[in-house]
C-alpha cells in the first residue's frame, strides 16, 4: 500500500503521498462513493417497503417528479421567481452593507453613528421581524425581498467593517511613509486588505439570503420554489417537496462556487490560492 502511494508520478508532481492507497485520478470520484451508496440504500429501503413511500419518496420518484416539473416548465417559472427575489434582495443588501461598512470603517464619526446601532440590531434575529414586515409591507413581494435584504446586509456590513479595521497598521504606516495620500491609502491598502474578509461576508450573505428566501416564500406565496414545496405539502407529494429541497441545496452550492470563483480571481495573491494552481 505505502509503496503504491509513493508512486513515481505523485513524487514527480511534488504532491505529498496520499494516505489512502487509491490512485489520484480516482480522488474526485472517491468523494461521491458515500452519497451514491446512501441513495442506493434509500431506493432499496423504499422498494422493499421498509420506508413508506408516502412519507419519503424514493430517489427514482424524485427524479421522475423533477423531470416532469422541468418538462412542464413549472420548475423554470418558480425558479426564476425565486432567483429574482434573491437577486433584488441581495443587491439592496450589497448597496446598504457596503456603504455602511465603508462609512463605519473609514471614519471614526461614521463608526460612532453607524456601528453601535447596527451591532444592536444584529442581536435581533431578523426572522423575528416577519410579523412586523407583513404589517408594514403586506404579504406581497416587498416582504420577501426585504427579508432577503435584511438577512444578507448584516454579514456584508460586519465583515467589511472588520476587514477594514483589521488591515495591518504596519502596512498603513508604510503607505504613509511612501507618500500615499489618504485616498491612496484607502485605494491601495485598506480596500484590498479588507477584500478577503468582505468576500467571506459575501459568501455568508448568500447563505443567509437563501435561508430568508425559504422563510419568505412560505408566507402566502403564489410562486417560487417555496410555494412549490408548500403546495406539494397540501397534496402529500413528498417527491416534489424533495425536488424543492434539492433545488435549494443546488442554489446554495452554486452561489458558493460563484464566490469561490471571484476569490480565485480577486485574491490570486494569497498563498492558499497560489497553492491551488
Amino acid at each position: 500500500m505505502s509503496g503504491q502511494s509513493l508512486s513515481v508520478p505523485a513524487l514527480a508532481r511534488g504532491t505529498p503521498p496520499r494516505r489512502l492507497g487509491l490512485p489520484r485520478n480516482l480522488g474526485a470520484a472517491r468523494r461521491f462513493v458515500v452519497p451514491v451508496l446512501l441513495l442506493l440504500l434509500w431506493q432499496l429501503a423504499a422498494q422493499s417497503g421498509l420506508v413508506s413511500t408516502r412519507l419519503l419518496a424514493p430517489p427514482s420518484a424524485i427524479a421522475a417528479a423533477a423531470w416532469q416539473l422541468i418538462a412542464s416548465g413549472e420548475l423554470g417559472y418558480h425558479l426564476a421567481v425565486s432567483l429574482q427575489r434573491v437577486a433584488i434582495g441581495l443587491s439592496i443588501a450589497l448597496v446598504a452593507g457596503v456603504s455602511l461598512g465603508l462609512l463605519a470603517g473609514l471614519s471614526r464619526l461614521g463608526e460612532d453613528l453607524v456601528d453601535a446601532t447596527l451591532q444592536m440590531l444584529r442581536a435581533l434575529p431578523f426572522l423575528a421581524l416577519v410579523p412586523l414586515l407583513i404589517l408594514w409591507l403586506g404579504i406581497g413581494e416587498a416582504t420577501k425581498i426585504a427579508l432577503v435584504a435584511l438577512g444578507a446586509a448584516f454579514p456584508i456590513y460586519l465583515t467589511l467593517f472588520g476587514g477594514i479595521r483589521g488591515v495591518d497598521p504596519k502596512l498603513l504606516e508604510a503607505g504613509r511613509v511612501f507618500g500615499l495620500s489618504r485616498a491612496g491609502v484607502i485605494r491601495h491598502i485598506i480596500l484590498p486588505g479588507a477584500l478577503p474578509q468582505a468576500l467571506v461576508g459575501l459568501r455568508y450573505a448568500l447563505g443567509t439570503a437563501w435561508l430568508s428566501l425559504v422563510v419568505g416564500e412560505q408566507i402566502n406565496a403564489t410562486a417560487g420554489i417555496g410555494y412549490l414545496v408548500m403546495d406539494a405539502r397540501e397534496f402529500l407529494r413528498t417527491d416534489i417537496i424533495l425536488v424543492g429541497l434539492a433545488i435549494y441545496a443546488l442554489l446554495g452550492l452554486g452561489a458558493d462556487q460563484l464566490v469561490r470563483m471571484i476569490e480565485r480571481k480577486a485574491l490570486a495573491w494569497r498563498p492558499s490560492v497560489l497553492g491551488e494552481r
Binding site: 500615499l180 484590498p192 485574491l267
Partner: peptide, 17 residues
C-alpha cells in the same frame, strides 16, 4: 512591509508621482 496584493514592481512604484 510589502503589500501582498500588489506584484513586486507595483510595490516598488507605490506612491511615486
Amino acid at each position: 512591509r510589502l503589500l501582498p496584493w500588489k506584484p513586486v514592481w507595483r510595490n516598488v512604484a507605490l506612491g511615486l508621482p
